[in-house]
Nucleic acid binder design. Structure first.
Lengths: 220, 220
DNA sequence: AGATCTCTTGACACCGTGTAAATTGACAGC
DNA sequence: GCTGTCAATTTACACGGTGTCAAGAGATCT
């Protein structure tokens, strides 16, 4: 009990499971991994998984938390929190979120798949997304404080709109379904936000012109 | 064989199944219906379903086709096809599509749920969405013909953007997750399209001001 | 030695989809 | 009437995936 279990030599089995699940979830070419796949990848028996996680859903949720920890999500959001002006805050927030999505998409995808049928998974995902909405609300409030938010635009409406723009589904559609490069996606989201929330209506068209889909995977 | 099977008295069992599936799919409060639920609702045995549809997926797909037929989707799209100017065409297309989504959402939701795990379902859905993209492309081309599409904006980029705006996921997020009224959603989508594709950048802010979320279900 | 903790093996229950075989009942034509 | 056919029925089962349970092996701490 007093021995250092965090030593570099022997890794926590729980952590090994999380790493295994993560790596399998990354691969989008294969079907979503079953409990038996994750066990095999970890090098333990399927039943042993249930000694560490009560259910598949809990394992998936734990994996997303593990990712947040490994990627130090809070540090990534620091530039946004520390931004002086509203517009800088908005940009930093969008940068942080939109560049985070591709890193976690594999796991998020699995969670979204379960969400479709399991209400508990829906709740878990909703909770996570509620945190994101908090960030959106904070950015919108910063815009309002600076007087950049157009007069008469409801803060809730603006928050929802930003929340929609940076949603995983939106990223999924533009980059995975349409095949847009991340750069192009990011610019578009940012300029849409500027057009709607920061009184910069011409930003949108400007950025769309820069968008080149020359080498995209799915030409249709 | 020569007897009229379409008489009002006795309806085709296949159609009865489709109606039953439809009505169960409509109800979003309960879990997605199983084959046994649909059979019970139809008033036949579960096995009899397989005499008419080879699999659950095929039944779901047939239900969407049945909806398209009942709702006369082609008639709904006629105003868009017959529009003279590009902007009228864009507006008519968005109107038709965006007001169609809530009608078919129940069934679409089930199909999207299966899509998450079943690649075949993914293909079926993608095919359907490809048709929608055709419509988007036609609208964008009409805008370009009228010289309304901003210079330098790639047609493919513009099409993808419109396609994303009117996607089911986007509707789902704004109306179901955020609780926006349909009216508010529709105005926002339309003005976003105008801002990005029809050189009307101020449309966006104008419509956001009209957006009132006073009586929305989920206040948070 | 004894106690405890982790993991193993093997078996099993449950649920939902899809398959298969034998049977019933209705309605057609001759 | 008899016969064929077609739709639907009942009963049963296979399969895949999740989650549970019980008995035991092996290591480690006291």
């Amino acid at each position: 009990m007093l021995i250092d279990t965090m030593s570099s030599e022997k890794i926590d089995t729980r952590t090994r499971i999380l790493k295994a699940a993560w790596s399998l979830l990354e691969d989008q070419t294969t079907a979503l991994p079953r409990m038996s796949d994750i066990a095999k990848e970890t090098g333990i028996s399927r039943q042993a998984l249930y000694l560490h996680f009560p259910s598949r859903l809990e394992l998936l949720v734990a994996t997303t938390r593990y990712q947040d920890q490994v990627f130090e999500i809070d540090k990534r959001l620091a530039p946004s929190r520390n931004a002086k002006g509203g517009i800088e805050r908005l940009d930093a927030f969008i940068d942080a979120l939109c560049s985070y999505i591709p890193k976690i998409y594999g796991v998020a995808r699995a969670l979204l798949a379960v969400e479709a049928t399991d209400p508990e998974a829906g709740a878990a995902w909703a909770e996570r997304m509620a945190d994101v909405r908090e960030g959106c609300a904070a950015a919108v409030q910063a815009l309002e404080r600076d007087g950049v938010l157009p007069d008469g635009v409801d803060v809730e409406v603006a928050t929802d709109l930003l929340w929609t723009l940076i949603s995983v589904r939106n990223w999924e559609h533009l980059t995975q379904t349409c095949g847009w490069p991340q750069e192009c996606y990011l610019d578009t989201v940012k300029s849409l936000a500027h057009a709607a929330l920061a009184q910069d209506p011409t930003a949108l068209i400007r950025s769309l012109k820069d968008c080149s889909l020359d080498g995209r995977p799915t030409p249709s």
